[in-house]
Each structure stands twice: as structure tokens, then as C-alpha cells.
């Protein structure tokens, strides 16, 4: 018990750890050590993301066009869902800090309830993130990847409220699959133990035929214009791009291809939000353990709820990281 609370039996002694210039218990100090090193890990990832973004600064995907979905609602609502997720995480941070405060007053009942609410908040957050990943992986419109690895998307000009706007069009809306006979090569047949990537729904030829048959459909490249919009090609350029450079039809995103733009955007999205999600998951587990310890009266008998505070530090740190992930993936 002594190891978890501040007393070490060395109080007042200059040597052997008796001198405590920082006035923090061992456990809390170690949690801060961990948090500082973990913060450096996350900033390493985010700075690497910044590197790739600066590298492709003139063609980076626009977050508002990528994350537009809200569960149970159709239509385009950029930012709304992720703002909700941010709010949930801040809320669960608040219940956590309230649990710490109740712990200082040795109020077991309140600590129990606040820990419970914190766990619920964490579960809602991680569920939302799973949904967000699922939507991102499934994709929406589909795109064509060129030989150079660039992404070409499709759309057409429509007049909405007297203003001409570029509306995205899904490949499935104008291209027709004509050659369904092509079978996916699996490792169990043909050349053994050799596999291929899942077949795209359409071939480039089918997309080209569809594009020729629909004169209003245009190609949009990833290059950003002066105003920060994606460049829309003319009809001739559109046909030429697909015919000359088109290589693969992609739908959705994974670690290799990404219909929203640079593949590295998807890689970083999966890696950084995944690593953060893993932290949330670990935090939920720790919170559950502490919750049951509170319920069993472990800390009541120990005479100190410091463990709630230490786990709380970790939980707030997860929230802190999310604040930065939110900014650099969804806002900036």
C-alpha cells in the first residue's frame, strides 16, 4: 500500500529519495513520464503527417469533402459528426475530472458514477470512430488512379440556386460493367499461392466508354486552384486523361489506394486515428479496472483515491491528443 501512496519512509532525508522537490508521488511522476514520452510519439506521427502534407501541398485532399457523413442522415454534413465526437471526448474528460474531485472528498458513490459515465463516453467515442473508419473504407463515388499514382474524380456542373456548382458523380452512375467474366485469381487455383488484389468493379475501358456516352461528365484532378478548389478539366482534357493515364478504378480507401486523393492521406488517417483509437481502447480498459476497484472499495480501504487521478491523467492525455488530431485532420 505504501508503494502506491506518497510515503516511502524516507521523509526528511536528503538522500534515498527523501527529498521531493516536485512534491508529486511516485505513481503520478511515472504517469507524467509516460505521458511526455507518448506525447513525443504522437507529435512524431503528426509531424510526419505534416511532412507528407507539405510534400503534396498543392494536391492534398480537402477534409470537408472527405468526411461528410453523419449516421442515419443522408446528404453532406462536413464536420458535424467529428465535432460531436470531440464533444463526447471532452465530456468524458469532464466526468473523469469530476471523479478525481469526488475521490479527493472520499465520496465513493460519486466516484463510482462518474467513472461509469467516463467509460460510457469512451465507448461512444470509439464506436463513432469505428463508424467513421467504415465510411471512409467503403468510399462513396469511386475514382480512377493514374499511372503516376494521382487520383481523377468525376462530376458535372449543376445549377443550384442560380449558382453553377460542381457536383460529384459516382462511377457506377455512368459506367457500365460489360465484362463480368473476369474471375479473381485466388491462391487456391491457377498459379498456387499467388494472389491478386480484389478486382475493381470497372475496368478503365468501361469507364472511358461511359465517359464518352455522357457528355456532361467531367474529370476533376487533385491539383488545387488559387482559390483552394480542385481543378476541373475540360471535356477534351477529361477524355484524354482517362484514355492516356488511367490505370485502375478505385473505390474507397485502404493502405494502398485512396479514392479521396493521395494514398498517403489514407495511410496517415488510418495510422494516427488508429493509434489514438488504441489509446482510447486502453484507457477504457484501465477505467473499467479502476471502476471495479472503486466498486469493491479498494481505494476506500487504501485511504486514497490517487489511482483514479493517475488513470485520469492518462484519459485526459487521450483527449488532449484528439484535440490535435481533430485540428490537423479535419480543420486545417
Amino acid at each position: 500500500m505504501d508503494t502506491t501512496v506518497a510515503t516511502t519512509g524516507k521523509e526528511g532525508k536528503l538522500w534515498g529519495g527523501g527529498n521531493e522537490p516536485l512534491k508529486a508521488s511516485y505513481g503520478k511522476m511515472m504517469m507524467w513520464f509516460f505521458i511526455v514520452s507518448d506525447a513525443l510519439t504522437f507529435s512524431g506521427f503528426l509531424a510526419a503527417y505534416g511532412f507528407s502534407r507539405f510534400k503534396f501541398i498543392d494536391s492534398w485532399p480537402i477534409a470537408d469533402e472527405v468526411f461528410t457523413h453523419v449516421p442515419f442522415f443522408h446528404g453532406s454534413y462536413p464536420m458535424i459528426y467529428v465535432a460531436f465526437m470531440t464533444f463526447i471526448l471532452i465530456m468524458s474528460s469532464v466526468t473523469m475530472v469530476l471523479a478525481v474531485d469526488a475521490g479527493h472528498h472520499m465520496n465513493k458513490n460519486k466516484v463510482t458514477w462518474y467513472m461509469f459515465l467516463t467509460v460510457i463516453g469512451g465507448i461512444i467515442f470509439i464506436g463513432s470512430q469505428a463508424w467513421e473508419w467504415n465510411t471512409f473504407i467503403k468510399g462513396e463515388y469511386g475514382a480512377v488512379q493514374t499511372k503516376g499514382g494521382n487520383i481523377l474524380q468525376f462530376g458535372q456542373y449543376e445549377t443550384v440556386d442560380g449558382k453553377e456548382t460542381f457536383k460529384r458523380v459516382a462511377i457506377a452512375d455512368f459506367a457500365k460493367a460489360t465484362n463480368p467474366d473476369r474471375v479473381l485469381h485466388e491462391r487456391k487455383n491457377g498459379l498456387w499461392y499467388v494472389t491478386e488484389a480484389p478486382l475493381p468493379e470497372f475496368t478503365i475501358e468501361e469507364v472511358l466508354t461511359g465517359l464518352k456516352a455522357n457528355p456532361e461528365v467531367l474529370v476533376r484532378t487533385q491539383m488545387l486552384t488559387e482559390e483552394g478548389h480542385k481543378t476541373v478539366l475540360s471535356r477534351e482534357e477529361s477524355l484524354q486523361q482517362i484514355a492516356e493515364n488511367g490505370k485502375l478504378v478505385v473505390h474507397g480507401a485502404n493502405l494502398k489506394v485512396n479514392e479521396y486523393g493521395a494514398p498517403i492521406f489514407a495511410d496517415f488517417f488510418f495510422f494516427i486515428t488508429g493509434f489514438h483509437g488504441f489509446h482510447v481502447f486502453t484507457g477504457i480498459l484501465l477505467n473499467i479496472i479502476v471502476f471495479f476497484n472503486v466498486l469493491l472499495g479498494t481505494y476506500e480501504r487504501r485511504g486514497s483515491y490517487e489511482m483514479v487521478e493517475k488513470v485520469g491523467l492518462y484519459w485526459h492525455f487521450v483527449d488532449l491528443v484528439w484535440v490535435f488530431v481533430f485540428t490537423f485532420f479535419y480543420l486545417v
Binding site: L22, K23, A24, A39, G44, A47, A48
Partner: peptide, 28 residues
């Protein structure tokens, strides 16, 4: 917390993170 603990945590992070960001963005 004590001022010293605050500084140990914040300055370490801020210094290293600024350095990292500068190097990587410059290179990008």
C-alpha cells in the same frame, strides 16, 4: 502542481516538438 514539475513537463515537450516540426516541415 509545483512550478518545477510544470516546467519539466511542458518545456521538454515544447522544445522537442518545435524542433521536430521545424525539421520535418522544412524537408517536406
Amino acid at each position: 502542481e509545483t512550478t518545477a514539475l510544470r516546467r519539466v513537463i511542458v518545456w521538454t515537450g515544447v522544445f522537442l516538438i518545435c524542433y521536430l516540426i521545424f525539421i520535418l516541415l522544412q524537408e517536406g
